[in-house]
């Protein structure tokens, strides 16, 4: 038959209170196997309390070649930052 196992991306929450973070990827035949493999590959030393797996083909990634139009517009919007606004020094708690 020779069908290759698809690739899955693994996200692990290190402890409650923290977000799931991308840890890496692995191959598995289905989601259940991906979870079990992720446990063995990425949490052998209590690195996590929760795992998400998602098949890699379902992730749409931005293209670094378009980083200019994608991310540069934020660069000239200094008014989104608190330091943009001039206040006298004696104003406190702001």
């Amino acid at each position: 038959m020779k069908k290759n196992w698809p690739l899955w991306e693994v996200f692990v929450r290190s402890k409650n209170g923290l977000e799931h973070r991308h840890f890496g990827s692995l191959h598995a035949a289905d989601a259940d196997m991906a979870l079990k493999n992720a446990r063995d590959v990425y949490t052998r030393r209590s690195e996590g309390v929760s795992i998400w797996v998602v098949e890699s083909k379902n992730i749409k990634a931005s293209n670094p070649e378009h980083n200019g139009e994608m991310f540069e517009p934020a660069a000239d919007k200094a008014y989104r930052h608190p330091t943009f606004y001039d206040l006298p020094d004696d104003v406190e708690h702001m």
Binding site: N4, L7, G24, S25, L26, H27, D40, V41, Y42, R44
Partner: peptide, 26 residues
Amino acid sequence: LAKVQDEAGHGLYLYSACETLGISRE
């Protein structure tokens, strides 16, 4: 046993890193 299992894990981290360069595991 734990050491040998780690080696398997290390191999898998590295194969995954390598696959991001556009070559398949097979």
